[in-house]
Computed example of a mutant assay.
Amino acid sequence: MVEKRGFGTIFMHAVLILGIAIVCFPIYLTFVGSTVTHYDIVRVPMPLVPGPHFIENYTNALTAGINVPVGRMLFNSLVMAAGIAVGKIAISILSAYAIVYFRFPFRMLGFWAIFMTLMLPVEVRIVPTYEVAASLGLLNSYTGLVLPLIASATATFLFRQFFLTVPDELVEAARVDGAGPLRFFKDILLPLSTTNIAALFVILFIYGWNQFLWPLLITTKPEMNTIVMGLKQMMPSADDYGNWPVTMATAILAILPPVAVVVFMQRLFVKGLVETEK
């Protein structure tokens, strides 16, 4: 193994530290803004040291917010993101399992029909999707937030490609041991797919957390707003000064759940992306 030493190592670390500083500085400014008063934020220069109003501002955000308490919006986003991630993975892994291990008419036609839906994102089919959801009475409900978004051609494709790499000897061994299709799926495929599931869960959770257009259409009650919608509503418009400390506190709170998911699942996430042998 060849290790780089000297100026090259120092330069690479300096570039890495500079990149981290550039990325983290706006987040740090947001945190500082969430701990001071409105006057401290709008005056020049803005303070670069956290102020004494941390507990006050975050308490106001969680319990009062602007229109809806931020705590309620965080819960709505958490339900939506977790529901989308779990739903996409469950449907995709079962679809891929059926496509790879079962022989039925038009099997590959069904797979390519699923794969072609990549060309039809939510924004393209938003009107008919909304009409179906409204006709089923899914407006202003968690089911309406989650159900129309849980199909995933990408996850189905990734699970299919992984299942194709599973040795046929495992299938034959399971048959010899008397394991049926469900037993084979539960005891062999699911444990082998753990890292893939973890990597997809992180990606899909963040995808669901950042959704804005669909929740904006499917919900009309303020108590069903997600955190992304709440942040947009908190931004001042026209001559409105807004409540910047609460807005900044809400922004910090909004990034905590996705960051927590990435941190706690980092090992499995990286392993699922780079591991070549199962």
Rank of each mutant, 00 (worst) to 15 (best):
M1W: 09
G6R: 08
F7G: 05
T9H: 13
F11D: 00
F11V: 04
M12H: 11
L18N: 07
G19I: 10
P26K: 11
P26N: 10
V36M: 07
T37A: 13
T37E: 10
I41P: 04
P45A: 11
P50I: 05
G51M: 02
H53M: 08
Y58T: 00
Y58G: 01
N60C: 03
A64M: 12
A64S: 11
G65H: 02
N67V: 14
V70R: 00
G71A: 13
F75H: 02
N76V: 02
I91V: 14
I91Y: 04
S92A: 15
S92Q: 08
L94I: 12
A98S: 15
I99R: 06
P105Q: 09
P105V: 03
F111C: 07
F115H: 03
M116R: 04
L118V: 10
L120D: 08
P121F: 08
R125D: 05
R125H: 10
I126K: 03
I126Y: 06
A134H: 06
S135H: 12
L136Y: 01
L145V: 01
L147K: 03
L149D: 00
A151C: 09
S152N: 07
T156S: 03
F157R: 08
L158K: 06
R160I: 06
V166W: 13
E172R: 14
E172M: 07
R175H: 13
R175K: 15
R175L: 10
G178E: 07
F184G: 06
A198H: 01
A199R: 00
A199D: 03
F201V: 02
I206D: 03
Y207C: 04
W209E: 00
F212Y: 15
F212H: 09
L213N: 09
W214D: 05
L216D: 13
P222T: 07
E223T: 13
T226C: 00
I227C: 00
Q233G: 08
D239S: 14
D240C: 05
Y241T: 11
N243K: 12
V246P: 00
M248G: 00
A249C: 11
I255L: 05
P258E: 02
V261Y: 01
V263C: 13
L268C: 02
K271M: 13
G272F: 09
L273R: 13
V274L: 13
T276L: 14
